[in-house]
Amino acid sequence: MAQATQSLSSSSEKKKRSLSDYLLPGFFGLFVLFLYGPMFAVFLLSFQGPEGQLFFPMRGFSFHWIMAVFGPQRVGDFVTAFQRSLLLGLSIMVITVVLSVMAGLAFRYRFRGSNLIFYLTISSLIVPSILVSLGLGIVFNLLNLPIQWYSSALVGHLTWTLPFAFLIMLGIFGRFNPAYEEAARDLGASDRTTFWRVVFPLIASSVIGVGLLGFTLSYDEFTRTSLISGETNTLPLEIFGMTTNVTSPALYALGTLTTIFSFVLIGVALFAMQKLEQKQKQAK
């Protein structure tokens, strides 16, 4: 069927090509160039020779700057900042998954105030990030709570990840056929058993996706963290700080490494999701 359509459209193309047939691929090419061009430039520059600068041309090719990231720095500290961000991201991931799954379960039924909670959650996405950061700082000060990456910044990140995860879980449970749960209960399963034996395995691949989203949103979050990370920096804050001080391609090398890390993470998650889905062989 698809083949037939294809051959049909290609034969009509031969007769007459419209302007959009040229414009659209061109536009898409530009889009890809803008999307990955900068990243590619950074990627290339991080392999500058030891004499290289922050800009083209390349002066040789080396792993000098990549190694430099792991060495002692004149300014800043990549490694502990990375550890902080990793730990923070993982915490955010777990909290986001747990809370959003629970919220998703709750929102399948209308309850008193469900609309209010829904809109309040969503509207936090349109509040300017810097205001959220500022506000959180003030509140933490007021309550005499420590302003640290693991306290105030954690809350700040949750204000960012939770609404997204919540929206996604709403979508997932919107498509979830409640008959599965009813069937489980019918067969004598308790609510807990129903969740762990039937509901969770069926949403598991989506849950991995939500977890990944939570992690990446947190891992490169900047604005919300900027005023409330305390005296230590998360990785994005550290990198930003360095742009003003570091004048060597080590900065690019760091960018390349963190990007590779993100891609690896996405790869692992996709692989896990695929494995799960294969295992489930979901009907329809």
Binding site: N177, L187, L202, Q280, K281, Q282, A283
Partner: peptide, 14 residues
């Protein structure tokens, strides 16, 4: 102690 056969069958796909 009742049992239901669902319209969609609701067989657990996993």
């Amino acid at each position: 102690n009742t049992s239901m056969m669902f319209q969609s069958y609701a067989l657990f796909p996993h």
